[in-house]
Design a protein around this nucleic acid. Structure first.
Length: 414
RNA sequence: GUGGACGUGGCUCAACGGUUAGAGCACUGGACUGUGACUCCGGGGGUUGGGGGUUCGAAUCCCCUCGUCCACCCCA
């Protein structure tokens, strides 16, 4: 075997890359209508950024990061997610001088996990972050933007679940209540949850071990423990979502794997095609992260979409411009063809010229294999007449068209 | 990181430990010397993922390794 790619690192080949481009272009066109601008972020950041933002006891930090010592002796990490770098840039580049900053980004993320369908070591996310909006309307509007994006792509069977994790004021008290509740039932919990009780008791809530599900069935709900402002915020988010025609499923047991979330969190899951990797998009509010990383107090809301997973559940294919294959028969036709093909491309038409000289039959077969919409033939007869034979490969019809009218016949009506 | 299933032409898959590892699709040439998708005939294409072992003999059995998929963990 010759050299292969690294485990969990894939090539996105033609046939699939068109769909990716369509996803990204659709995202950009939708996000722009909500006032977002693109930010291009580096792929490598100082390791400390992720330790301090994602949280030292999270799975990502504990076992999934691609961390290296560079030649200077600094510890750097291939970004496992996009929010932390975006926040770093927001603070470092002083973007807070604008009243509101809305950013989107796309690109590869890296996590050292065992690959599975819809889960890779290098995977792609498309994300958006709103900086400086405390209003629950920001949560609702950003979520409805995401739903609109999914709708435009023809995603079906997506399910939106939301929860509120409270904030610095009310979450500690809830943690305490939950901790005490769990302490009473340590005999029923799995090994994993026993370890989690002290570091992050909330994680026991979404454990899938039957014993833990049973043991936490009667556990206090975080939604009952929210302080006045957090409860009001959450209620407003739901009200505004309703006004946008979105009715999320309330899931008080949903706990995200990153430490920086406050108040609203959400997850969009797909019910088909992804096995247990069914989370397609997720995000939430992180009102304390910017200040914790040394920036001014800035409430934020953001999300990330997994592009591989999105591509897997999409029904519609990428839109496609018609393709023309040009076939010149004879030396003179080749020369004239140079001129014609150049003019068509200038007009934005996709043209591939068949450079081979074999039997027309095999060249037509080639055009068919290239999935051409039209085959354009220029031979001696056409040269004399100043025309070209245009065959519509789908309808199996053909006609002779004058040179200066050919572009119109193969442009696909654009 | 744990457990399991599976790796055979480009693709989908056959072949009980026993001749030269086959078939369909795809590719290519011809029937048809300017017309694809149908039909018929011919042709090319393999280190059976890689390495080691058992055996007179290994695609087949054993070990190691790499990879894919599934479940768990967790997540996009």
């Amino acid at each position: 075997m010759s050299i292969t790619s690294v485990r969990g690192f894939n090539d996105i080949l033609p046939g699939e890359s068109e769909l990716w481009r369509h996803i990204e272009e659709t995202a950009w066109s939708v996000f722009r209508t909500y006032g977002f601008s693109e930010i291009k972020l580096p792929i490598v950041e100082k390791t400390e950024l992720f330790l301090r933002s994602i949280g030292e006891t999270t799975d990502i930090v504990e076992k999934e990061m691609y961390t290296f010592i560079d030649r200077h002796g600094d510890s750097v990490t291939l970004r496992p997610e996009g929010t932390a770098p975006a926040v770093r840039a927001f603070i470092e580049r002083k973007l807070h001088t604008a009243p509101v900053t809305r950013l989107y980004y796309t690109g590869p993320m890296f996590r050292y996990e065992r690959p599975q369908k819809g889960r890779y070591r290098q995977f792609y996310q498309l994300g958006a972050e709103v900086f400086g909006e405390e209003s629950p309307r920001a949560d609702a509007e950003t979520l409805s933007m995401l739903m609109r994006f999914f709708g435009k792509l023809g995603v079906e069977g997506a399910r939106l679940e939301i929860n509120s994790l409270g904030d610095r004021n009310c979450r500690p008290a809830y943690k305490e209540r939950l901790y005490n509740y769990l302490k009473e039932r340590t005999g029923d919990l799995c090994e994993n949850c026993l370890k989690r009780i002290d570091a992050n008791p909330l994680r026991a809530l979404d454990c899938k071990v039957p014993g833990c599900i049973e043991a936490t069935r009667e556990a206090p709900s975080i939604l009952d423990s929210l302080c006045e402002p957090c409860a009001g915020h959450f209620e407003a988010v739901r009200r505004f979502l309703g006004l946008s025609g979105i009715s999320p499923v309330l899931n008080p047991r949903m706990v995200r794997g990153l430490d920086y979330y406050t108040r609203t969190t959400f997850e969009i899951t797909a019910d088909t095609g992804l096995g247990s990797q069914n989370a397609v998009a997720a995000g939430g509010r992180y009102d304390s992260l910017v200040s914790e990383l040394g920036g001014p107090d800035t409430p934020c809301f953001g999300f990330a979409v997994g592009i591989e997973r999105l591509a897997l559940i999409m029904k519609g294919a990428a839109p496609r411009k018609p393709l023309t294959v040009f076939v010149a028969l004879g030396d003179e036709a080749v020369l004239k063809g140079v001129e014609l093909v150049a003019a068509w491309r200038e007009a934005g038409i996709r043209v591939v010229e068949d450079f081979s000289t074999g039997a027309l039959k095999s060249r037509m077969r080639k055009a068919d294999r290239l999935n051409a919409d039209f085959a354009v033939i220029l031979g001696d007869n056409e040269l004399k007449a100043g025309t070209v034979t245009i065959k519509d490969m789908r309808k199996a019809e053909q006609a002779d068209i004058e040179w200066d009218r050919a572009a119109g016949a193969i442009s696909g009506g654009e």
